[in-house]
Design a protein around this nucleic acid. Structure first.
Lengths: 135, 135
DNA sequence: CAGGATCCCAAACGATACTG
DNA sequence: CAGTATCGTTTGGGATCCTG
């Protein structure tokens, strides 16, 4: 976690001239916690149905146990998923999305829609950039 | 605001019809490029007006020159901002947002709105988690 | 099954120092 | 002014071993 304690007392003009794109430290930190590398995949799975740990691992083959654990802890800490301890013999554990977590779907959906929509344009831009800057 | 009752649509591409390829679409990679640590702040500034390099540095005091350069290059490569070389004596350079970049505003805005909306709930969740797990 | 504990590497980031 | 280059440090992630 980065806590840039060095707040500027010098220049804090966050004046939006033509809109309200308020980007604050808490906002960015929050999005970092919730939109990190594996969160989207996990959220995506848990939106469908509750899953157990190894179920998630199987659903997201590229994730390691360590990263998955870290992701689940982080999401749990932020209140978007919950952890159920089921007292069976080798203690099963189930993760499920919370109501708060469900509200995340729409913003993420909008973002993914944008990505889908503009992926071609962006790949074109990348190709053009790479061609001229790095021949 | 969240009308996700029946929208179970996955915008992540389902390419698991004949195998499990899975996890990552170019979507997540794209979002990583565009929603990284400093991009939102830079975009926010450039949405208002074109800025020069040191102007941006001053607006975003916590960013280092290196990170700012990297961020600008990345955003430029992805076609959301553009670089103007103004041939004055000590070569001024101006960054400005592109039409494509402007389309990013809405998704980001939705996301930031969600963050603003749920920040209190999330901070409560964090406090609760930290209290019980880490006394 | 669900993870904690380690080691280790690679990428990210910050802090100078230097240049056209 | 607008960067590039380099170094040292921090962080995240993967791999592996181990436990309740």
């Amino acid at each position: 976690m980065d806590t840039d304690g060095t707040d500027d007392t010098d220049d804090t003009d966050d004046m939006d001239t033509d809109g309200e794109l308020t980007v604050d430290a808490p906002h960015r930190e929050l999005l970092d916690q919730v939109l990190d590398k594996w969160s989207l995949s996990v959220l995506n799975e848990l939106c469908g149905r509750p899953c157990r740990f190894n179920e998630l691992r199987r659903s997201i083959p590229a994730v390691t146990q360590k990263s998955l654990t870290a992701t689940l802890r982080r999401l749990e800490r932020n209140g978007v998923i919950e952890r159920d301890v089921i007292s069976t013999r080798p203690t099963a554990i189930q993760y499920r999305i919370t109501p708060l977590g469900k509200t995340l779907r729409h913003p993420v959906d909008v973002l993914l829609a944008w990505a889908s929509d503009n992926l071609p344009a962006i790949e074109r831009a990348r190709a053009a950039f790479d061609a001229q800057e790095n021949p």
